[in-house]
Structures are given as structure tokens and as C-alpha cells.
Amino acid sequence: MLLVVLGYRTNLTMEQLAALFATTDSTVHRVTADLAPHLAALLGSPPTDRRELWLVDGTLIPVHDQQKTKKSKNYRRSVNV
């Protein structure tokens, strides 16, 4: 579960996560694909009030603050949602 959460939070590539956890990138991809639905199930259904809506999808949002971001695979500075 730590691998999945860290992958969503930091926007690291599969190769970077594999190096961090001392495994292969195919294993990281398989574990992420297997555990992501279980993580979504733990969060439960979203609240009905739109002011309290939450979202976990890994969407990249462009930002221009160079102190808090790094260039991603597409060479744009962005953060994960």
C-alpha cells in the first residue's frame, strides 16, 4: 500500500519507484494495478455535498513555482492531485 500511495503522492515513474523499493518496474506496475482499486474502496463513496468533494486520480496540474515542483516526463512543471 505504501508503494501505491507514494506513487500517487510524488508522481514518480515506475522505474524510480522500482529503484526505491528494490524491485522491477513490472512488479511496481502490477502491484499498483492490483492495489489501487482496494485503496479507492477504503476511501468509500464521495460525499454528497459538493463542497466536500474529494478526488484521487493522479491528474497533473500545471504550476509555475519551481521551488515545489520538478519537471515531469512531459517536461512541464506540475503536481499530482
Rank of each mutant, 00 (worst) to 15 (best):
V4W: 01
V4C: 08
P62C: 00
T13D: 14
P37T: 06
G44D: 11
A22D: 11
D57W: 04
Y75V: 10
R76A: 13
N80C: 13
V81R: 05
T32G: 06
T69C: 12
T32E: 06
L17Q: 05
A33L: 07
V28R: 01
K71Y: 06
D65W: 02
S78R: 04
S26E: 15
S72R: 13
D25L: 00
S72A: 13
E52F: 10
A36L: 03
Y8G: 15
T23P: 02
H64F: 07
W54H: 07
P46K: 01
N80G: 06
T24M: 07
A19G: 12
L35T: 03
R77L: 15
A40D: 11
A40L: 09
E15V: 08
T10G: 05
A22I: 05
H38D: 09
T23Y: 11
T59L: 09
L17N: 04
N74Q: 13
V4I: 08
Q16C: 08
T59R: 04
L60C: 01
K71M: 09
W54I: 12
S72M: 11
V81N: 08
A33G: 02
R9F: 13
L43A: 13
T23I: 07
A22N: 09
L55E: 14
L43G: 13
D65R: 03
A36V: 02
T32V: 06
L43H: 03
T27P: 00
P62N: 06
A36G: 00
R30D: 15
R50I: 14
T27L: 03
H64D: 15
E15W: 02
T27M: 02
R77M: 12
Y75G: 15
T48D: 11
A41S: 09
L53H: 11
L42K: 06
P62A: 07
R30L: 11
F21V: 04
L12H: 14
A41C: 04
V31F: 03
L17S: 04
L3V: 05
E52Y: 11
T13S: 15
V81F: 12
D57S: 12
V5K: 09
S78T: 13
G44H: 07
E15H: 07
V5A: 14
V56L: 14
S26I: 09
L6F: 12
Q66K: 10
W54P: 01
V63A: 07
L12N: 14
A36F: 02
L42V: 11
D57E: 14
D57P: 06
L6R: 09
L43V: 04
T69L: 02
V79C: 07
V81K: 02
T27Y: 06
I61N: 06
V81A: 12
G44E: 10
T48K: 04
R76M: 14
L12W: 12
M1N: 05
A41G: 03
T24D: 15
L20P: 00
M14R: 04
G58F: 01
K68F: 10
Q66F: 06
P47V: 07
L2F: 05
L42E: 14
